[in-house]
Design a protein around this nucleic acid. Structure first.
Lengths: 344, 344
DNA sequence: TTGTAAGCGTTATCAT
DNA sequence: ATGATAACGCTTACAA
């Protein structure tokens, strides 16, 4: 094969071998980092020397081919534009990089999860981290023979890590209840994504324990993003007997809701209390700052990656099961006691 | 080599060949997508049939090894957490995916650009898109023999695409000048990043043309992120004879500045006018919405990727040079005429 | 038109 | 301790 003109062929183990006066195999032994490689000290030094003289850099592609592993993993998230998932990815990247793996990042918004899995397979990834992407949406068998770790999605089939979404919802309810609210609303997606369902269930459940139900018109379905949050809040504001406290399934929705309230000339938290969920950086950028439930996104990603790498590098060790990661209420500027009838 | 137990060996061209009753090479010819492969229609069909029966999926790693190309590119950005760069990456990904390339995303915050380049090299990437990462910060020779396309950074050595940063600064000045402002401030990084330097130069230059200079105490240096923007604005607010209009080198800084103003009880834009740059989604989430200069991040990324792919796939075609991508002023809620002395 | 065979750069299993 | 040598799955002359 002739290389593209002008681009010099890169240094291989053969080149190093020639310079060090040893066989190519020996070079591989020395440079391959194989722990049980017994090479004479002198030879080893000659080889290392030659390698650094030549600027040798191992060809990962060749290594991948022979080892049957690419030292690459994939991570699929619902939407990279959501800072929460970006943090999950950051966590995955950190751990993966430390472990010598590269990460192929896939945004389910740009391409369907099924196609992403196909692509990742073709690239021989050693495993995939899948975050909150409904597994049912994948073709049957799409994940066969693949090492998969799930984030925020329970499964019998694959190991995973999750945050305590139920607690998140309960905390939000608890906080608002404690402030004296009695008329609640909820904004969240109707999707099958487990976390959102649990957040909602926790919220609704805690309210029910307090003897309060959310009438269906105050239960607004919206995709977990800013614009849908604005629209949903608009609908809520138009209602008579409107809610004094709204729990949003994530911060993006919360930010949208806040925007709508302020645009409508309402005072937050005087007129309406708002609670989000995730605690993305933006929550502290808006004015007033968004009260929210903090979810350790980065840690979630890091743990998922650790789980995956452990399966990959030590396949025999027993799987560790994680209990849900704790979440934390962050009381900030969008929640307060409701107005008394007199004040209104 | 024995595979890990339980994991079935994947289907290779040999398997397909056996089933179709042809040689392995023929399978490669048919399935390899080689345009100048002449195979009999009947054979071709048998092979395709066998492949799909077996669920054959080409091994990109093997293909990469023999072709000397990995069909993978890298993209290095200063900070993935900045939505602007995330959009650049999204643009790169879209084009790369269409062209059959995978993308390795590198955040200069997590690891130094030099190390990223090393890692990418080891993984045999075919090229790298580098966005606003000072090339001087790289070790000499780090980019040798590498196909590189630069975003928002001029260079003799590598092709690139850029936005019209000078115009961005001028537009901001023009707009504020038009509103009647005379006391200006600027918040931006002191880094060597070309775009920021140009935005500043455009702004300052346009003001100078109007006979106005920015006193040094109103020229605040801050890393291009939210928190530094808050701090810088705080300093600005503490000054007597303070500026009535502030141009921030990017939206993150602008958002921070806005936050500080509102927290200080000032009314924006009544008391202070603020202009950002980039036009990230967040600019429209805060209240009031941030006036800013829109920069086509996604398009920037897409063009960079197209440039790179063209060099990769058609090395002989002449390089296309891009003129700077136009930017656009988005007048929103954070700019207005300054208060008259009487109103103050 | 199709098959044979020589690699691509590495790892890993033997002999030596 | 070191060196042949055979894969890994594919592409691509070249031969048939």
């Amino acid at each position: 094969m002739t290389r593209r003109a002008g681009v010099s062929r890169s240094i291989t183990t053969h080149d190093v071998a020639a310079r060090a006066g040893v066989s190519q195999a020996t070079v591989s032994l020395v440079l391959g980092g194989n722990p049980r490689a017994r090479v004479a000290q002198a030879t080893r030094e000659r080889v290392v020397r030659a390698a650094s003289d030549l600027g040798y850099r191992p060809n990962i592609v060749a290594r991948s081919l022979v080892r049957g592993r690419s030292f690459t993993i994939g991570v699929i998230v619902p939407e990279l534009a959501n800072p929460f998932f970006l943090d999950v990815v950051a966590g995955v990247q950190r751990v993966a990089t430390e472990g010598g793996y590269a990460v192929l990042v896939c945004d389910a918004r740009q391409t369907s999860p099924g196609r992403h899995v196909e692509t990742l397979r073709g690239r021989q990834v050693d495993g995939i981290v899948i975050d909150a992407v409904g597994l049912e949406s994948l073709p049957v068998g799409a994940l066969d023979d693949l090492q998969v770790v799930l984030v925020d999605e329970p499964s019998e089939r694959f190991p995973g890590v999750a945050s305590d979404a139920l607690a998140a919802g309960r905390m939000a309810a608890e906080h608002l209840l404690g402030l004296g609210h009695r008329r609640f609303a909820f904004i969240g997606p109707a999707t099958d994504v487990h976390t959102f369902r649990m957040r909602e269930r926790g919220f609704v459940g805690r309210l029910r324990e307090a003897g309060i139900a959310i009438p269906s018109e105050r239960l607004r379905r919206a995709q977990p993003a800013i614009a849908p949050g604005q629209a949903a809040m608009k609908a809520l504001l138009a209602q008579r007997d409107r809610a004094t406290a709204v729990f949003c399934a994530n911060d993006l929705l919360g930010l949208g809701a806040l925007k709508t309230c302020l645009a409508a000339g309402l005072s937050v938290p005087r007129d309406v209390s708002l609670v989000g969920c995730d605690d993305i950086e933006l929550a502290r950028v808006v004015t007033p700052e968004l009260t929210t439930v903090s979810v350790p996104a980065r840690e979630l990603g890091a743990r998922a990656a650790r789980l995956l790498l452990r399966e990959l590098d030590h396949p025999d060790e027993p799987r560790r099961t994680h209990k849900p990661l704790p979440v934390r209420l962050m009381v900030r500027g969008t929640t307060a006691a409701p107005l008394t009838p007199a004040e209104r």
